[in-house]
Design a protein around this nucleic acid. Structure first.
Lengths: 103, 103
DNA sequence: TAAACCAGTTTATTTTATAAACCAAATATT
DNA sequence: AATATTTGGTTTATAAAATAAACTGGTTTA
């Protein structure tokens, strides 16, 4: 019987992405944020952001609501409980890699 | 004049990789480690590890020395000062994303 | 001496990230 | 009023990355 990977817990690939992590980082601190705001804060292109938001949404880490701001469309994002938990776990896992003591 | 990406500093792409980060995490804590040990600690395949070690080596984040252990070849790795600095900076940058206060 | 094994490397494949091109609606321009 | 421009995105094509499969050269074992 073979022993497996004792040391490093795998990192959630959905969160281990610069842009998706930045999006989650923003959303964890606010009630909600819209596409335009997230775009400005991250400096991402609209296309890239759109794709990454879709992925986070498909995983149910965030919830996306399409509304209007006056006459303009507005894409609102909120983190879900699942997303919050995943983020917290990602942070704890990463601490092992970064040699940062837990809590 | 346009304002750019105020909030998130870019993450060093060489370190923002699960396996390369694990390798650096190991090497930061020891004087040196060999290929076989790193492989066992990370659970990586030999091929993948070989490629990632090459990349870290090409960036001079680590130094690779080919020696022998008895009659067997032995690939020794050590972190460099450049690697140590890059790792430290990566950790600090990441803290922003993870909402962990700096020092 | 051939079969299996060890320590890796090289190459091919899959996955991922990213930007370019596009679209519909709203607003501004002549 | 027609047309040009901007806004808020989505879709698609391309570039880059991660990863495993296949391979190599030497070593031990049967």
């Amino acid at each position: 019987m073979e022993e497996k990977q004792t040391t490093f817990k795998p990192l959630d690939p959905l969160l281990h992405s610069e842009l998706r992590l930045a999006v989650m980082s923003i959303l964890i601190g606010v009630v909600e944020a819209d596409f335009v705001y997230i775009k400005s804060q991250t400096g991402a292109t609209a296309g890239n952001l759109s794709v990454q938001i879709d992925k986070l949404s498909a995983a149910e880490y965030i919830q996306v609501e399409k509304t209007f701001k006056g006459k303009k469309t507005c894409t609102l994002c909120r983190i879900t409980d699942k997303g919050r938990n995943a983020f917290a776990e990602y942070v704890e896992t990463l601490k092992q890699y970064l040699q940062i003591p837990k809590v």
